[in-house]
């Protein structure tokens, strides 16, 4: 009798254990946060950023107010006043380049965690929609962007890193907003990382740094239905906007190439970047 009762107890314990462990399996569990890896499911997740936990989402330093209408900086901006020969209309950025974004971008760019692309791309998409709404409001018509142009990285960097972050962000945006991406710029020489340089050095260094591939630019023009095109609007894509020298150099190269190919076509070039430093 005693042995059968102990058997019964064992069976009871077994079923209890099995059911309690399978109950854990059945509990809804949010996937771990793409940045911090936490599986915290208590704070609700944002619809557009399901890959982030509530805590990390709260850290995104969105730019909600602009001070400089040219570069979209959230504070007073000396660079845009000093710059001559600005070849672009304006820049808009999704977020400030604060320590949080610096870390996320470092994880993505230098450590190669390409799993962060959807997150960063979605941030770009938010900024893109804001930019279109703003432009449409000021010009009283629905503004349409005809193509995305990623800022190129040097061949050396591309081989080392395996990808061009601007091109990846551009591709993501192209996919989510149904736009075309034209990879028509290239670097004329290898330059050191911009982040190690002063403003003056950056400006000198970026002069004539980029050139547009004329064949590719011509092919791009062909792909537009040029009859109905009154103004060509292109959007240059990059990850960080600091002094604007890189973006401006790209815009200059692009404007020159388009001028030589289609002198009569008015071109307006805009810049969209992930972070404004």
């Amino acid at each position: 009798m005693s042995s059968s009762s102990s058997l019964w107890r064992r069976l009871q314990k077994f079923t209890q254990q099995t059911f309690s462990s399978s109950a854990i399996l059945l509990q809804p569990q949010s996937p771990s946060c793409a940045v911090c890896g936490s599986r915290d499911g208590k704070t609700p997740r944002h619809d557009r950023f399901p890959q982030l936990c509530g805590r990390c989402y709260g850290k995104i330093p969105w730019i909600t107010q602009m001070f400089c209408p040219v570069c979209g900086r959230p504070e007073w901006c000396p660079d845009c006043i000093r710059r001559t020969g600005t070849a672009f209309v304006c820049n808009r950025s999704a977020v400030r380049y604060d320590p949080v974004i610096r870390q996320w971008l470092a994880l993505y760019k230098y450590r190669g965690n390409e799993g962060l692309l959807p997150l960063l791309g979605e941030m770009m998409a938010m900024a893109y929609r804001g930019m279109i709404a703003e432009l449409s409001l000021t010009s009283q018509e629905q503004v349409q962007i005809h193509g995305l142009i990623p800022v190129p990285v040097s061949e050396e960097r591309l081989l080392e890193r395996g990808f061009n972050q601007a091109e990846q962000l551009g591709s993501y945006l192209a996919g989510s907003e149904r736009l075309a991406l034209y990879d028509i710029l290239h670097r004329t020489r290898h330059s050191d990382k911009q982040s190690f340089k002063t403003r003056g050095a950056r400006l000198r260094d970026t002069e004539q740094l980029f050139a547009a591939d004329l064949h590719a630019a011509a092919a791009m023009l062909d792909s537009f239905n040029s009859s109905g095109l009154k103004t060509l609007r292109l959007l240059i894509i990059d990850d960080i906007y600091t002094t604007g020298s890189t973006a401006n150099s790209c815009a200059q190269a692009l404007a020159e190439a388009l001028k030589s190919l289609a002198p009569a076509l008015p071109v307006r070039i805009y810049i969209l970047t992930l972070a404004r430093s």
Partner: peptide, 26 residues
């Protein structure tokens, strides 16, 4: 593993996410 377009080899190339902190193994 995560497979992404890789400019270094020009193909769709997998990398390991588990040991990413030690440099990317691809």
């Amino acid at each position: 593993m995560r497979r992404t377009a890789c400019a270094a080899c020009g193909s769709a190339c997998a990398y390991c996410e588990a040991c990413l902190t030690m440099g990317r193994s691809r």
